[in-house]
Write a protein that binds this DNA or RNA. Sequence first.
DNA 1: GTCTATACATGGATAGAC
DNA 2: GTCTATCCATGTATAGAC
Lengths: 216, 216
Amino acid sequence: MRPETAKSRETKAKLLEGALRTLTEQGIAKTSARTVAAAAGVNQALVFYHFGSVDELLAAACRYGAEKAVAAYRPRLAAVSSLSELLSLGREIHERERAGGHVSLLGQLLAGAPTHAALGPATAAGLDLWIAEIEKVLRRVLEGTPFAEFADPAGLARAVSASFVGIELYEQVDVAGAGAALDALEQLGALVAALEELGPVAQRAVRHHLRRAGRR
Amino acid sequence: MRPETAKSRETKAKLLEGALRTLTEQGIAKTSARTVAAAAGVNQALVFYHFGSVDELLAAACRYGAEKAVAAYRPRLAAVSSLSELLSLGREIHERERAGGHVSLLGQLLAGAPTHAALGPATAAGLDLWIAEIEKVLRRVLEGTPFAEFADPAGLARAVSASFVGIELYEQVDVAGAGAALDALEQLGALVAALEELGPVAQRAVRHHLRRAGRR
DNA sequence: GTCTATACATGGATAGAC
DNA sequence: GTCTATCCATGTATAGAC
């Protein structure tokens, strides 16, 4: 029985922040009760007292970090009204993530999932927060465009989220390469944005070809 | 001075294979000289004799594994002549990767890069093998399409490769979600493929809009 | 609730026998 | 080249003092 005193919550918060910092700065391989406790500035034994095990602390940190990150971007995402806007917001998030690292955190946790049993579901849940938000945006943005009937917002949201995680991980070993990748995706976004403004004749042609291609 | 005897090369090969298996099955967090040596069926001390340190073994395994994987798909990639073909080959690679795991291996190594100094460059090199191959395909496929003048094959190849790594990692925690993501990307590929077959008038319209959107 | 001390396991790395 | 033995650092987890 652990009463939820003010101090208890404070220590838990310190540990969660410490876990996030350790994971993003040191990676899953160097994340341990000791390193996290050191980053949090508390005693190593408190990890086990408050969370039972390192894995459960990491799972909690995942939920906590993902919720915090998504909440920070939620208003911006809600304001997006076109695909090119979404792409450029993605670029902006990427820039900020270079400091915060909440996305590559998910990458670290995905990498740890095979051995740390508790991590898989927690990471999936954290990713789902991003996915749900992006899916809303995509659904809104795609509505009324010629390819709304072919695009699957749910699947696309998952593709976008997973891709973003991959790119953030990639940036850790090749900053220039990751920049070039995002540039290219922005161009791709511009292409789709251009399609949104196509005339009715061309749109009908696109629709026709899509229907043919869509039959599998 | 280490003579390159037949036995030496055999042991090295065993260790490389063991490292690949351990990384894909156990993840970077549980990869150590002992676990790798156990998977390879050789003595733990041989890791240090042949490779100097665990990190250098992993770096070598990365080069070795990426080269092997890319070589296996090279003929298939060379035969691709359209974007939708590329997408469906991507799906096929994904299916095989579920067994082999050579792509999520790169994810594991990316996750380990922050702390293991030797891993960053090695992983970047491994990814570059994929990137180079995909870039060639993209360059060939995009040539002669209306958006060849806007698309950047080098950047796109990086985006595709990093995204693929992200999706393979994502699959480890959500198989259905990863499937939905790939389905959605295939639909997107069908969209672009449809554009390839547009008539000259519509293509001119697309080009016009792209030029406007491309000015930043 | 928190800390110190401690147990026990795992991992990196080397020395020396074969 | 390979193995056994060994050292030392790091990590998980618990017991018990404060």
